[in-house]
């Protein structure tokens, strides 16, 4: 299946073009539009981005595979990203992880059968003062406790 930018996304990218000295600068903005549009970046989307940027597809492939936040395959509707780095580890990350695994019945890197949740551990989210923290899709949740995690997950469809 081929990938086409929505008219809205294409217009947004085109209006951004005049802010930069070269169209190639729009690589990350274009890949973010793909993520926004379909949640992951497959080969078809890489080819479409390459055509729009006028660069070889392999260059887009190299970039898309470099950055952690770009998913190359579909994932769950809610992507739970639990911070695992030192400050969160010092402040009880392990208990939160154990609880998440048990509650969702999955291991890190897996997706629930209904496709609702994918569980990841990620490196420092830049929120060390309110550890432990997790991000679900784009939203950051701070000062986590087991009760708070339950509340947050119940609030998600």
């Amino acid at each position: 299946m081929s990938f086409t930018f929505t008219e809205e996304n294409l217009q947004a990218l085109e209006s951004l073009e005049k802010r930069y000295p070269s169209k190639e600068a729009l690589m990350l903005p274009a890949l973010w539009k793909v993520m926004r549009q379909q949640g992951h970046i497959d080969t078809e989307a890489m080819v479409a981005v390459a055509e729009w940027l006028e660069v070889p597809p392999v260059k887009v492939y190299g970039v898309a595979t470099f950055y952690t936040m770009f998913h190359l395959e579909p994932i769950g509707r809610h992507h739970i990203q639990l911070c695992k780095t030192l400050s969160c580890a010092l402040c009880g990350k392990a208990d939160i992880l154990a609880h998440l695994k048990k509650k969702l019945g999955i291991e890190v890197g897996e997706t629930t059968e209904d496709g609702r949740f994918t569980l990841s551990q990620v490196e420092c989210l830049g929120s060390c003062g309110t550890a432990p923290v997790m991000q679900i899709n784009d939203t950051l949740y701070e000062n986590l406790t087991i009760e708070k995690v339950d509340e947050i997950l119940e609030g998600l469809e």
Binding site: L16, R19, Y20, A25, L28, P29, L31, W32, F66, Y67, T68, M69, F70, V122
Partner: peptide, 8 residues
């Protein structure tokens, strides 16, 4: 202009 990184 804000330029958004992607986790690196």
């Amino acid at each position: 202009t804000i330029h958004r990184g992607a986790g690196a």
